[in-house]
Design a protein around this nucleic acid. Structure first.
Lengths: 157, 157
DNA sequence: GCGAACCTACTCGGATATGGGATGTCCGAGTTCTCGTGG
DNA sequence: CCACGAGAACTCGGACATCCCATATCCGAGTAGGTTCGC
């Protein structure tokens, strides 16, 4: 899985700490965890295209969450970065070569069905968790983390 | 996900049709679906290293299932090809840069935990399905498939 | 005729090229604020 | 003192390199069976 997913998730969490009123530049989000700024910017662009965050250009611009953290699931973020297509791609090899019966099969590929079943379980689990739930867990486990994030990222210019 | 997973799953299914008595060469398994023989051989080697299949060299050699199809899960095959490491790799970016509190955190990374939870769901679903169950479903849906497989792959030399 | 050594055919196993996507970088497009200038 | 316009600074957005892994291929290692030669 792409490393950018981790960056995007942590960045969404940080944007949630700051709140939707103030926009945070990609450079600030990158500096917070010592990441390459231009590349993180690329990931944030993907989030913007997916409608997870808003982007504003010019001074005072940056990125903000596009909706309430309770309405942003982990699946939204993962799909924004990795793409909508499923990990396992059935290429229907059963229809090629002597193994194919010649006629097009009336039944779906059962190998594909089995793999899809697992992938649906994965996606369901991701869709059941929101950024807001992550926020709450972090607040309970380490209350200083949101404070530090707001100080570093939400400081007035 | 690697395309070889699809090949390995179908090949395991075909080896299950033939049965453990007769070894099937990689070239035969490849020709059955019109796949590149040398590359499929590489995937089968991975299955052999993982203990899913036995390999025998020389004339009359080839690959056989190492144990009963009911004791080979889809997870076994996927792990053999893709490797044992998880798809989402937490690199602990929270411990880098100004975002880190300076001291090593006592709590685990909750983003990692959330992603791992989804991945466990995926693996559980794969571990719950065996090659034998796939065999049964295919036999019910398309009984001619195992017949063709035995004819093409299990034919006496 | 019989046995053993050799030889050939067959198959796996790992070392070796190649291409596409993830990773990383750079400069242009667009926006906002500031500063200076003229009325 | 106020309005307006030009300029500068800031930030996103997409185009351009680079690297690594999945893909693909090839030849050597090892085995089984047949074949031939000698006794």
């Amino acid at each position: 899985m792409a490393e950018g997913v981790e960056w995007a998730l942590h960045s969404c969490l940080n944007l949630a700490w700051v709140g939707p009123e103030r926009a945070v530049p990609a450079a600030a989000l990158a500096a917070f965890y010592d990441l390459p700024a231009a590349y993180l910017n690329k990931q944030l662009q993907a989030l913007a295209r997916a409608g997870v965050v808003y982007s504003t250009r010019g001074p005072g611009g940056g990125f903000r969450l596009a909706r309430d953290p309770g309405r942003i699931t982990l699946l939204d973020v993962v799909v924004a970065i990795e793409g909508r297509e499923e990990a396992f791609q059935c290429t229907e090899i059963r229809q090629r070569g002597p193994g194919a019966a010649g006629a097009a099969p009336s039944t779906p590929c059962l190998v594909d069905q089995a793999m899809r079943r697992a992938e649906i379980a994965w996606r369901t689990e991701l869709a059941d968790q929101t950024i807001a739930e992550l926020q709450e867990r972090v607040s309970r486990a380490a209350p200083e983390v949101p404070v530090r994030a707001r100080q570093w990222l939400g400081a007035a210019p």
